[in-house]
Write a protein that binds this DNA or RNA. Structure first.
Lengths: 339, 339
DNA sequence: TCGATTTGCTGAATCGTTTCTTCAAGGAGA
DNA sequence: TCTCCTTGAAGAAACGATTCAGCAAATCGA
């Protein structure tokens, strides 16, 4: 006979449905005697009653649902972490996550946001799969929104991005602590926030240690294995070669390992290397395992949903506007003292 | 003044709401003159009316929503592909995907399924992040379900898994075509379906080519880089070493590369290698790039949702029970002719 | 021409809640 | 004893759709 309805509970407890509703929702200021209250509660328990979210939503205009729109969830292994962080936070609060991915197409994106608004989601997480600047779809003006792993242009929407600068500082700091002074940076040539942030962190940290900047030590290439191989090659062929290289990401570090191997340099004995991203399939698997900086995707996902729930349930005006999530250093075996 | 309601459309077109509903839903056998039909359509267009899915769901008991419950979406890069395939298929059919991940905890899983049932999802995809046998939560008996990347024990629920056997056959076939006869297999020591399937495919293909099985040529270790390194090492140190190795997965292949390098063997000149999984961050990035077999996660995700939609919208009895999704060979540079 | 059928449309019930208004009963105060 | 509050609870009106039953007007057959 299907799920019990509120009227079944009411009948069993011998009261009206409104009273049941009031009791089950713990409505403030409602006047129900302790006795009937308990009668209702036990009837509900006996029947295993749970209220129908659809009917409830129709009345309350709240769905306990949030939309997660991302540009691409398959192409990067990081995406899963963000989604998982978001999902966990939502779940804990009793919310469910609608997942939509747009493949980065603007039209599909609009369509997706519209579909989510149609379903009256209580809020939207707008996520990008790598740190960048984005222009939000206009429709998002109609719903509480938090931006994840991107910085919205204009507008005053809360967002969270990795602290690239701090992460780079941690990486370079680790090399400094090991005793290195001549530290190269194999960076990404594209002008993305991650690149500029990490470069800034690299420079600042060296400066703070009293080491003059040497433009020769910064080599920019594509941010992949081949790029890393090239950039590291250039650095290692310098007259006065660096004995430590900070790589823009783990893939470049992988290329760097190869460049080092070809020159007969042993890591970390002859060359120390630090990466960035802490990619599961690279960093721990290289030999020696790569010391790197982790991207806090899970934490960012959590933060974004928590912030969104704050917007939905609490005072909309409190809370940070933009949050820099720290990138922790992950120590492995690719850093050693200078030879 | 908020979104337009059906009654606004009715008022504008000068008809009753029921007529609007009938026209907008293209109800079969409804008798509405062409003229009023067009009047309604244009009114709806003018107001930008879209029906409220919540109210509709309350009446129809259908939500155009499907639940995706997975055991873990962060730990593997494959998960994203499955989700994306599922999401794309759902989106195309006008369905939205509720994503829940359970971390593999049985209690949380029950709770998740209950939450999805509460919300009256039209169906559920039950996915695991690596190919295995699973026992479905009982509650799933109450809803249409398709199992993704796992084989349900008992029951008669449709499922889709990779064709491990066929994939292995493709890999070994590739080596045979290159002219190899003495082909080693570095396999996973755990008794998982992927391992037994691939082993079977390996044996069958060799047998079909008239090559007698040689137990020496099968080395089982952990399915990671170190395991691959060990297994390949054992194979390469054989008196009559194989000149081609099929690896259980790309990570083992990565270890195999290292083992080969340490013995001064060049790939593919002295040794041909084929992997499995086609992992983004490994297969194309190794040097030489790894010839491997791709796991059809995206396709499986799509298939699962399509099958589920069939269950929901069409005759529930048609369609396959269990589907083996082919694993295509991805040719790169790690296979060459025997020396 | 008259009853029967078809056509085109409408009103009202319904889905399962929440919430507002109303109401009876009991107690207090005068 | 009569009025006025307070308490405890019920009834009914939303919410926004779908759908069923019904009802005029038009058409048809004989």
């Amino acid at each position: 006979m299907g799920r019990p309805r509120i009227k079944d509970v009411a009948a069993r407890a011998g009261v009206g449905v409104s009273t049941v509703s009031v009791v089950l929702n713990n409505v403030e200021g409602a006047r129900v005697s302790l006795e009937t209250r308990e009668r209702i509660l036990s009837a509900a328990r006996a029947l295993g009653y749970t209220s129908d979210p659809i009917a409830r939503s129709l009345r309350t205009r709240r769905t306990q649902t949030i939309g997660f729109v991302g540009d691409d969830i398959a192409t990067t292994p990081f995406a899963g972490r963000m989604i998982q962080g978001a999902q966990d936070a939502a779940w804990q609060a009793g919310y469910l996550l609608f997942l939509v991915n747009t493949g980065g197409e603007r039209a599909l994106e609009r369509h997706a946001v519209r579909a989510l608004l149609d379903r009256s989601v209580d809020g939207v997480i707008y996520a990008t799969m790598y740190h960048r600047h984005v222009e939000l779809p206009e429709l998002l003006g109609d719903v509480r929104t938090v931006v994840l792993d991107a910085r919205p242009t204009g507008g005053s929407v809360p967002y969270v991005v990795p602290d690239e600068r701090g992460g780079a500082a941690a990486a370079v700091g680790e090399l400094l602590r090991a005793g290195h002074r001549r530290i190269g940076f194999a960076t990404e040539s594209l002008e993305v926030p991650a690149a500029t942030g990490r470069l800034a962190g690299y420079h600042e940290t060296l400066a703070a240690a009293g080491i003059p900047a040497d433009p020769e030590l910064v080599a920019a290439e594509h941010g992949d294995t081949t790029g890393g191989y090239r950039a590291a090659g250039r650095l290692l062929d310098l007259d006065e070669r660096p004995i430590a290289i900070f790589c823009y990401n783990d893939r470049m570090a992988m290329g760097c390992y190869r460049a080092a191997a070809e020159r007969g340099l042993r890591i970390p004995h002859d060359l120390s290397v630090v990466g960035y991203d802490d990619q599961d399939l690279i960093a721990p698997e290289l030999s020696p395992a790569l010391t790197t900086v982790a991207l806090p995707h899970y934490e960012m996902g959590r933060w974004a949903v928590r912030r969104l729930l704050g917007l939905i349930e609490d005072d909309p005006e409190q809370g940070e506007q933009g949050h820099l999530m720290p990138c922790p250093l992950v120590r492995r075996d690719s850093v050693g003292p200078p030879p």
